[in-house]
Amino acid sequence: MKYSCLILDHDDTVVKSTPDIHYPSFVEALKTLRPEMEPLSLEEFVSYCFNPGFSELCKDVLKFSKVEQEYQYKIWKSYTNSKPPDFYSGFSELIKEYKKLGGIVCVVSHSESEQISRDYMLNCNFTPDLIFGWDLEEHHRKPNPYPILEIMKKFNLDKHEVLVVDDLKPGLDMARSCNVEFAGAGWSHIIPDIKKYMKNNSDYYFPTVESFKEFILSK
């Protein structure tokens, strides 16, 4: 295998969750928190999550108070608990084969560790070797380099042994901060400007899960 360790994003990289879970839960929260506001479209929501990021959307763009952030979190939590997202077609087979060959599977995501573990058990019958999720303190979350540094330390890995896979800019920024290679997960992209940015700035860019599978499992 080309890499000893995959550091995978979760939402819209491994699971199709934003259109079915994260976006509708956010729209529901906004109906209460900003009832006078025109609802964000899916494209607008994804664009904000791309840049400046979801935390910044809540705190800096929409100016959520701490109480409002807690309410939004409560709505989101009810959605994530009640509706496990589907893995992208072919991804569970890919990751099970990679694991069988001795690969290390880690997840760095803005979803919570509990849901990530649940999704992997449902689809792969194992949990990732390490998970760094939303439940971390904010200064340790992606795009902070902390998750990558901890993974490399835990498994005694060099930079060239690691590949970060993500569909959005925070994952790219995290990889660049540690000088490790980055693969853009293009199979979820619906916005041309995001697709163009990720293609131009990734070390590798894969439009389909199958093309990524062929790359990652080749010798």
Results as ranks from 00 to 15, higher is better:
Cys49Val: 09
Ile191His: 08
Leu62Phe: 10
Leu42Ile: 10
Asn201Pro: 13
Ile148Glu: 03
Ser218Arg: 12
Phe54Pro: 02
His139Ser: 12
Lys63Gly: 09
Asp9His: 01
Asn201Leu: 07
Ala183Ser: 12
Val67Trp: 09
Tyr79Asp: 03
Ser55Cys: 09
Ile190Lys: 15
Ser202Val: 02
Leu30Gly: 08
Lys59Val: 15
Lys99Phe: 02
Ile104Arg: 00
Ser78Asp: 09
Pro85Ile: 01
Glu214Ala: 12
Glu150Cys: 10
Lys16Val: 00
Pro147Ile: 01
Ile95Arg: 00
Glu93Ser: 15
His10Gly: 04
Lys159Ser: 08
Ser177His: 14
Lys99Arg: 08
Asn123Val: 02
Glu210Gly: 11
Arg141Asp: 05
Thr80Cys: 06
Ser89Arg: 04
Gln69Gly: 12
Thr127Pro: 14
Leu136Asp: 10
Phe206Ile: 01
Tyr197Ile: 08
Ser117Asn: 14
Leu130Pro: 00
Glu161Gln: 10
Lys154Leu: 09
Tyr73Thr: 02
Ala29Cys: 13
Ser41Gly: 12
Asn81Thr: 06
Leu6Tyr: 01
Lys63Cys: 12
Lys195Gly: 14
Val105Trp: 04
Phe182Arg: 04
Phe50His: 10
Asn156Glu: 04
Asp9Lys: 04
Asn179Lys: 09
Tyr23Met: 09
Asp20Ala: 03
Tyr23Arg: 02
Met1Trp: 05
Glu214Asp: 15
Thr127Asp: 13
Leu163Ala: 03
Lys219Gly: 12
Ser78Glu: 13
Phe182Asp: 05
Tyr204Cys: 09
Ile194Pro: 04
Gly184Glu: 00
Tyr197Asp: 01
Ala175Asp: 04
Trp187Phe: 07
Asp173Lys: 12
Asn144Gln: 14
Leu157Thr: 06
Leu57Val: 08
Asp119Cys: 12
Arg118Gln: 14
Tyr48Gly: 11
Met198Tyr: 01
Pro147Ser: 05
Asn123Leu: 00
Asp12Ala: 08
Asp9Trp: 08
Ser78Pro: 07
Met37Leu: 15
Gly184Arg: 04
Tyr98Arg: 00
Asp119Leu: 02
Lys83Met: 05
Glu43Val: 03
Val164Trp: 04
Glu161Tyr: 07
Leu57Pro: 02
Ser92Phe: 14
Leu8Asp: 01
Met121His: 07
Lys2Thr: 11
Asn200Met: 11
Val14Phe: 01
Asp167Trp: 07
Trp134Asn: 03
Pro207Asp: 14
Cys124Ser: 07
Arg176Leu: 13
His10Asn: 15
Phe45Gln: 11
Tyr73Arg: 11
Tyr3Cys: 02
Asn144Val: 01
Phe126Trp: 07
Gly90Phe: 07
Ile190Gly: 13
Met174Gln: 11
Asn51Cys: 15
Leu30Arg: 00
Ile191Met: 11
Leu8Glu: 06
Ile148Asp: 03
Asn51Gly: 13
Val105Thr: 08
Thr208Tyr: 06
Met198Lys: 04
Ser89Pro: 13
Cys49Lys: 10
Tyr79Trp: 10
Ser25Gln: 08
Pro170Arg: 06
Ser47Gly: 15
Ser92Val: 12
Leu33Lys: 07
Cys5Tyr: 05
Ile75Ala: 03
Phe45His: 07
Ser89Asp: 15
Tyr73Val: 04
Val180Leu: 15
Asp9Pro: 02
Phe215Val: 11
Lys142Arg: 14
Ser111His: 06
Asp203Pro: 04
Cys124Phe: 06
Pro207Trp: 11
Lys99Ser: 00
Thr208Lys: 00
Gln115Lys: 15
Lys213Met: 00
Glu97Arg: 06
Asn201Tyr: 10
